[in-house]
Amino acid sequence: MPKTSSPLTRCSLKVTERLLLLDLGEVRRVRSQDGPCLVRYLVVVRERGPYGPLLAREGVAAAQALVYALPVDLLEFSFDARGLSLPGLRFYACEPEFVETPLYAWLEG
């Protein structure tokens, strides 16, 4: 039986005290709690408010980013082939059987 790879194996992850940035490598179709969207980046920031300058410093086009503002320690994450998890947020590699958190997104197709 051939082994299939996760769609997240080609992603890159950067984490700082102010920002968690998951680069999907290309624009992908994603479904979130707010509906479908096309994004290249999943971004979690610590504070609400204008995050445009923070994204610009990282070279992230805001129009290509799905951004979540969460008051959590961004270093408290887990990331594997199934997805990315933070307190209150879960990003799945594919559509899950059920959603585990209030904020969520997954790769479509």
Rank of each mutant, 00 (worst) to 15 (best):
V72G: 12
G109T: 11
V44G: 09
R31Y: 03
A93Y: 02
P96Q: 09
V27G: 00
G109S: 11
L20E: 01
R40Y: 04
G88Q: 02
V30P: 01
S85M: 00
V99A: 02
A81F: 04
L75R: 13
R48Y: 06
P53F: 14
V43I: 13
A81C: 10
V27R: 09
V44S: 07
W106L: 07
F91N: 02
L75F: 14
L86Q: 05
T9S: 09
R18F: 09
V39N: 11
T101I: 01
L103T: 11
G49S: 09
R10K: 12
E47G: 11
C94A: 14
A56T: 14
L8K: 00
T16Y: 13
F77H: 11
E100Y: 03
V44H: 10
A63W: 05
V30E: 10
G52V: 15
F79M: 02
S5R: 09
L42N: 09
L19A: 10
E58L: 10
K14A: 13
W106P: 11
G35L: 08
V99C: 01
Q33V: 05
E17D: 05
F77S: 05
P53L: 08
L8F: 02
L84H: 00
T16Q: 03
A105G: 08
T9R: 07
S5D: 07
L74Q: 10
E26G: 01
F77L: 06
V44K: 03
E76S: 14
G83D: 04
L13V: 00
A62E: 10
T4E: 13
P2S: 12
L54F: 06
